[in-house]
């Protein structure tokens, strides 16, 4: 629980206050600073601030991962729309385990959420090292097993 992480939580909370309120007079700015500091202090006291509770370490490399994820989501949307509009008999759903090589819980959650966020694949169970995935088409499950998304999330996690 390093103080730097508590401070970064404070900055994020105060930033959210500024963007959502849109008022800039000293009284409301003061209220925002006090609220953000109080929440950061409470979270620190709860022991909730670590690489899992406030995974700011993923934020640096996230912009490099985002465009690829958005592109995959767009492609997957088209595939699922086609599957919905085609006859039900043509469906070939499949379930299986996919390797997850992330070293931290935050990285594993990022990978499982990326899988679920991509239409056509849903993570059913996430365990360290492997994720149980249900796919609307067998090909999408095979593609996940090849591990490109796994590798990209690992790259976002960084080498430590």
């Amino acid at each position: 629980m390093p103080p730097a992480r508590t401070f970064s939580l404070f900055v994020v909370l105060f930033g959210a206050w500024l963007l959502l309120s849109g008022h800039w007079d000293p009284f409301l700015l003061g209220c925002g600073a006090v609220s953000a500091a109080l929440v950061a202090a409470l979270a620190r006291r709860m022991g909730a601030i670590d690489g899992e509770g406030h995974p700011i370490q993923l934020a640096w490399r996230f912009p490099a991962y985002l465009p690829w994820l958005v592109w995959r989501i767009a492609l997957a949307n088209l595939a699922v729309v086609r599957a919905i509009l085609s006859p039900v008999a043509a469906l070939d759903p499949a379930a299986g385990w996919v390797d997850a090589n992330q070293k931290t819980t935050a990285g594993l959650v990022a990978f499982a959420n990326s899988i679920t966020l991509t239409p056509g694949t849903v993570s059913l169970t996430a365990l360290p090292g492997r994720i149980h995935v249900h796919a609307l088409a067998r090909g999408e499950l095979e593609e996940l097993k090849e591990g490109e998304m796994n590798g990209r999330v690992c790259a976002m996690e960084g080498r430590r």
């Binding site: 919905i84 039900v88 966020l117």
Partner: peptide
């Protein structure tokens, strides 16, 4: 609308999850 249609048309629970994915992302 297509996602909602999928929620109705697809045959079982696990395939309906993917229709929900279309609504939530696309």
């Amino acid at each position: 609308t297509i996602g909602a249609l999928g929620l109705i048309r697809l045959p079982d629970f696990f395939t309906r999850l993917h229709a929900a994915g279309v609504v939530d992302t696309g």
